[in-house]
């Protein structure tokens, strides 16, 4: 089904995009004012001998000209070497992976459920557009989404954790983890509040796009024709409307899945859930360049991968796009 040459061109293009993206982030990060060593040394003492300071710069390779650092960096990542975090002295990749795993505990179910719920409700709402139920749902969704997510989170923590004490105040697990190891249900109990919140948030966004897409499809001639032919309403919904309305969702949802790599710093802050989002802001304030580069690199990989997948999926589902040459 898929044109080999198109695929090849697309992959080659992704590689180029990745390279450019990595280069841009490298230089932006290295041009950032301030550096880790100054911050760190200032926190230790104001009276450091000059040669000591110079030695630190040399140790971290920061005394070389930027282009040389850049070449070394590119050479290293091509070899799969992501470097070592300045502040922890640990390899960047495992460090990111550990935090990412915790972020995914919340975000993976949230995004998956959010996409499914959003699409189902959106399709239903779009199909029934104009009806009372649709309007009620639509308005509810607008109101829900208009309220900032960190405010929802604060309120949820206040009501459910502080006042009612139904849920824990934060953290990954209860203290029993130290004796009996990680209990998945216990982790789920700790994660359930943020998962529910994130799910609703993702769902409202998808709901809105799906509803619009559905409304647009319903207005198309072929649906009108199909309906006019006297076909069963459900048959039209399943075979024509839904399939076409889902097309714009493919790109959107693949991006959402790729986007979870950055975590959600608001949710992580409020729910005391130190994941990749907090790691990023912390690395930023510490100017931990290798760690930051690692996070940006991983994100670029994921997003470019997602774009590739989305393109291939869409062209598979809708051959017209490929023919159009776009």
């Amino acid at each position: 089904m898929i044109d080999g040459q198109y695929l090849l061109r697309r992959i080659g293009y992704s590689g180029a995009a990745f390279f450019v993206c990595v280069s841009i982030t490298f230089f932006i990060l290295h041009l950032m004012p301030g550096d880790y060593i100054t911050n760190y040394l200032l926190s230790l003492s104001n009276t450091l001998p000059k040669e000591v300071v110079a030695q630190f710069y040399q140790q971290y390779g920061l005394d070389r000209p930027p282009w040389e650092q850049y070449l070394i960096y590119i050479y290293n990542i091509l070899q799969g070497q992501w470097g070592y975090s300045y502040q922890y002295g640990l390899p960047v990749f495992p460090l990111i992976m550990e935090k990412l795993t915790w972020s995914l505990v919340i975000l993976l179910p949230a995004v998956l459920f959010g996409i499914i719920i959003g699409i189902v409700l959106g399709a239903w709402s779009g199909w029934r557009s104009g009806g009372k139920k649709d309007l009620a749902l639509f308005n509810f969704m607008i109101v829900f989404r208009a309220i900032p997510e960190f405010w929802w989170a604060i309120m949820a923590v206040w009501v459910f954790a502080f006042s009612l004490q139904w849920f824990p105040l934060g953290g990954f697990s209860s203290i029993s983890v130290l004796d009996s190891g990680l209990d998945p249900w216990d982790v789920l109990y700790h994660a359930i509040l943020p998962i529910c919140l994130m799910t609703s948030f993702v769902a409202t966004g998808n709901y809105y796009v799906m509803r619009n897409s559905m409304i647009a499809v319903i207005g198309e001639d072929y649906i009108t024709t199909a309906r006019a032919k006297g076909l069963d309403e459900h048959a039209v919904l399943w075979n024509h409307a839904l399939k076409n309305a889902l097309l714009p969702m493919v790109t959107m949802t693949t991006f959402q899945v790729a986007g979870i790599i950055m975590g959600n710093v608001f949710i992580e802050t409020v729910f005391s859930w130190p994941g990749i989002g907090l790691l990023t802001t912390e690395a930023l304030t510490m100017r931990d360049l290798p760690l930051l580069e690692g996070i940006f690199l991983l994100d670029a990989l994921m997003t470019i991968g997602a774009m590739l997948v989305a393109d291939i999926l869409v062209s598979y589902l809708d051959p017209r796009i490929r023919m159009g040459g776009q």
Binding site: V157, L169, G170, G171, L178, T269, S272, L278
Partner: peptide
Amino acid sequence: VLKVITNPDS
């Protein structure tokens, strides 16, 4: 046992 609780209120 050291336990991470990021919010002082919590």
